[in-house]
Design a protein around this nucleic acid. Structure first.
Lengths: 223, 223
DNA sequence: CTTAATTGTCAAAATTTCGTCAAATTTCGT
DNA sequence: ACGAAATTTGACGAAATTTTGACAATTAAG
C-alpha cells in the first residue's frame, strides 16, 4: 500500500483528500504544518502532495529541504499559475504541479502516474490478459504473441480505461471525461478517431476487434 | 454500475463529489440547478444526493416533486442540523441526512449502505431475470440460454423501462415520456413499431411473448 | 353482424450515428 | 527553431436506426 503525505494548512482540504485517497486504496497522512510534515517524513511516504502557498511557510524552501530527506515524487498543489512559479517549483525539487481548484480525479490520476513511473517503487505489473492480448498498465505496453503493439498516450489511456472496465458501455462523453479529465473542454468526437486508430493497430496485428460499438450509446471492451 | 445524481448549486463541490464517486466505481451525474436535475432524472439514478439549501430552489418542495418521479433513495446534503429540519426532510420523501461539512468517506459509506439496503433497486436495476431471460442494464445486453439477443438503443430503453416496472401497465403516451424524455415532442405511435420489433426478436429466440397488450390502455411486461 | 376504435404489420422515407479520410493544429524531441 | 509524431478538427458517405404513413387485422360494443 502506497503512503502519501499531504501537506496543506487547510484542514478541510487535507481531510477531503485523505478520505479520497484512502478510498482509492492509499494510506494518506495529513500535515497541517511544516513541523508536522517533517515528523511524518519518518513514515517514508511514497509520494508527497505539497501546498506551496502556506501562510507561515515558504513552500519552495520547504520543498528544497525535504528533497534532501526523501527521493519520492513531490507534487505541488497551488493556486499560482505563472510559468515562473512553475519553473521555480521544478528547480526546487518538485516533480509535478497541480493548480487549484483541481479535480480529485486529476489528483489521483497524477498520483497513480507518478507512482507507476517511479522506478524506486516496486515494479509490480498490473497485467491484464484479454483474448491473447497482454496489457501492462505499469509499463503501458500492449503485447500480442511476444510482439509489442505501440500506442500513443491517448490511445493507451483509452485502452486502459476501457479494459479495466471491460464489458461496461461508456458514452463518448463519459469516456472523454474519464480520459481527458472532468474539466477538460473539447469535443468528444475525437474519440471516434482514437478508437479507429486503436482498432486498426489491434486488427493489423491480432486480426480481431476488441472494441464493440453499442450503437446510439457508446463503446465497450469486449469481454 | 450504480448511477448517482448529485444536486447542488456549488460546482466545485459537485465536481469533487463526482470525481470521488466515479473513482469509487459509481456513475455520477451533476446538476447545479433544479432544472438540470429534472432533466437528469431521465438517466434513472439509483440514488440522489440533494442539497436542500440551494438559493433559488426550495429543496424540500423539490424533493417532494421528484419523489413523484423516482423511487430511489434520496440523501440530503445540508448545513441545517435542527431536529425539525430533519423531520421535515423525512416527511418530504428523504431517506437520509448528511450535514456539511461532511467527509467523503461518510458519504460513500452511506451511499453504499443505502444501495445495499435497497434490495429491490439492486436486483431490479442491474441484473434481471425474467422467464429465462437475463437483462443486464450496465452492459445493455439481453441473453437467453447463453445466446445474446441484440437490441437497438430505443428498443433496449423500452425493455429497460418495462422490465424494471414489470407487471405495471403503461399507456403509450406514458411510455413515450419515460423513454424519450418528458420534454420530447413527437408521436407516441412509434412505440407500436418498436414493440413489434422487440416482440419479434424475443419471439424468434425464446419462442414466447414477454409483452402483453392491455387493450385500450397500453403495454406491460409479463411477470 | 356491423361498426368504430384500437392495435399490428409492412415498406419506404427521414434522421441519426458512425467510420473514414485528409488536412490543420499542437506537442515533443533534437 | 525545426521536423516528426501525436492530437484534433471538419467534412463526407455509409450504415443503422428511427420515424412515418398507409393499410390490414383485431377487439369491444351496439
Amino acid at each position: 500500500m502506497y503512503k502519501i503525505l499531504i501537506v496543506d494548512d487547510e484542514p478541510m482540504l487535507t481531510s477531503l483528500l485523505c478520505d479520497h485517497l484512502r478510498d482509492c486504496g492509499y494510506q494518506p497522512f495529513e500535515a497541517n504544518s511544516a513541523r508536522k510534515a517533517f515528523e511524518l517524513l519518518s513514515e517514508k511516504p511514497d509520494l508527497i502532495l505539497l501546498d506551496i502557498n502556506m501562510p507561515d511557510t515558504d513552500g519552495l524552501e520547504f520543498c528544497r529541504t525535504i528533497r534532501g530527506e526523501v527521493t519520492c515524487p513531490i507534487v505541488f498543489l497551488t493556486a499560482r499559475i505563472s510559468e515562473q512559479d512553475m519553473l521555480n517549483g521544478f528547480m526546487n525539487g518538485g516533480d509535478d504541479y497541480i493548480t487549484k481548484p483541481f479535480s480529485l480525479t486529476e489528483v489521483t490520476a497524477r498520483i497513480a502516474a507518478h507512482l507507476r513511473r517511479d522506478e524506486r517503487t516496486r515494479t509490480n505489473l498490473i497485467n491484464i490478459n484479454s483474448g491473447g492480448l497482454s496489457v501492462d498498465l505499469s509499463t503501458r505496453t500492449v503485447g500480442y504473441k511476444g510482439e509489442e503493439i505501440k500506442f500513443s498516450k491517448r490511445e493507451f489511456d483509452i485502452i486502459d480505461f476501457l479494459i479495466t472496465n471491460a464489458g461496461q458501455v461508456f458514452e463518448r462523453e463519459r469516456l472523454y471525461e474519464a480520459v481527458w479529465g472532468l474539466d477538460a473542454e473539447g469535443d468528444s468526437a475525437v474519440i471516434k478517431e482514437h478508437i479507429r486508430k486503436i482498432r486498426k493497430k489491434l486488427l493489423d496485428v491480432t486480426g480481431s476487434d476488441f472494441i464493440e460499438t453499442v450503437w446510439g450509446v457508446g463503446y465497450k471492451w469486449k469481454k
